[in-house]
Write a protein that binds this DNA or RNA. Structure first.
Length: 202
DNA sequence: CCGCGGATCTTCT
DNA sequence: GAAGATCCGCGGA
């Protein structure tokens, strides 16, 4: 197998980026690059779809249950990974927002693959087309090899990081209700890049 | 393209 | 005991 092409690694997004209101962090994460280094290979994808899960009255948020073993990282310092296991089969990746002590997280729902695509395909052999590779929260964690071992990982350092990239123009951000939930289902907390092929539902 | 059901197990009620 | 921030393959249009 051919080695993957060189990846241009931009600066890591700094801690202060995450220590803001969850909705702001969610919108501003669009366009940023998630890089996963595995066995010396960089797998990377551009964030094209996210959802915000808030503290307070957001009944869809896992933190609505309060501080438990599962949710404690959501209450911790921002810029860390909240990973959970769902439907007996899949992992979902969130980015913790808000200052420490205040719950808030951003679910990463879809990536546009930009590097290490061959390695991602090996992890997702059933993805026929490129747009099937990471166009869903369970797909992208499988493609990047993200598991509960990444619970609490610091996204500003280590082998799972978020990298700077040009901001997406506000006019190119589409806002809609979140997907796959029943409680607090009408809040406009899903954000995706307009007309992007890699969004989970079009 | 669309809708439906099965897989599979952790977490909270 | 049931629901859940999902995905995939199948059958029909």
């Amino acid at each position: 197998m051919r080695a993957n092409l060189p990846v241009v690694l931009t600066a890591r997004v700094p801690r202060r980026f995450y220590a803001r209101p969850t909705v702001e962090v969610a919108r501003d994460l669009l366009g940023k690059i998630i890089v996963r280094r595995i066995d010396g290979v960089d797998l990377a994808g551009r964030i094209v779809e996210v959802e915000a899960y808030l503290g307070g009255e957001d009944q869809a948020a896992h933190s609505y249950a309060g501080l438990t073993d599962r949710t404690r990282v959501i209450y911790g310092p921002p810029g860390h990974a909240y990973v959970y296991f769902i439907y007996g089969m899949y992992y979902c990746l969130n980015v913790v927002a808000e200052p420490q002590g205040k719950p808030g997280a951003v679910l990463v729902r879809a990536l546009e693959p930009v590097a290490g695509i061959e390695a991602m395909r090996e992890r997702r052999p059933r993805a026929k087309r490129l747009r099937d590779l990471a166009s869903g929260p369970g797909k992208l964690t499988r493609a990047l090899g993200v598991t509960l071992a990444d619970y609490g990982a610091d996204l500003t350092r280590g082998d799972l990081t978020v990298r700077d990239a040009p901001a997406v123009a506000p006019a190119d951000i589409v806002v809609s209700p979140r997907i796959g939930i029943t409680k607090s289902a009408d809040l406009p907390l899903r954000f995706h890049i307009r007309d992007n092929e890699h969004v989970s539902r079009r």
